[in-house]
Amino acid sequence: MSQNEINWPAALRATDSGEQAAAVHALREQLQSGLRIALNGRSDVSEAHLEDFAQESLVRVLDRLDQFQGRSKFTTWAQAIALNVAFTELRRKRWQDVSLDELMAEGERLAGPAMMADDVLGADEERTRLVAALRNAIEKELTPKQRAAILGELRELPFDQIVALLGTSRSAGYKLLHDARRALKRRLHEAGITAADIQNAFD
């Protein structure tokens, strides 16, 4: 039987311990093989890392078996979870030295004139006007945490790292950012400026 023909959820839940162990082993091998392809060429990933990621992913997949709805192949669903496990850990290691104070201080500067580099504005009056409106919206509408979170995103900090620094949960962090984006959009809309206006000015 090929791996595509295996009824994975049933095999992983099998009461026959031999059948279940074989399915667990096969899935771990498949996840590790996929991770090897996805992370090929990264200098920060060794074979030992791949083994650790595969093992942690396997545990996560088994925990979430009830969430599999059969809308894709089981292995595609499981591989997506494995990639999430691996990339989350790699991002955490890369950004572990960033501090909350640093992020909050930079977030505060987001509303200040020093935050925009000269090449953003140039001599273009329309750009200057639109960026001023954007900066005003950031200053008036956002809380310090929202500014810090947006700054973190712009700096390409991992979302997990941002919420950890802000001391909040993932869902609360997502709401914080979503509310911030909605507030900025509304404020600019009230000023008669659409996102397209700004986009056009910077294209």
């Binding site: 987001l110 925009m116 995103e153 712009l154 900025l184 986009q199 910077f202």
Partner: peptide
Amino acid sequence: RLTSEQVGSIV
């Protein structure tokens, strides 16, 4: 300082 690209990301 934010670059044009980062302002573009906000937009």
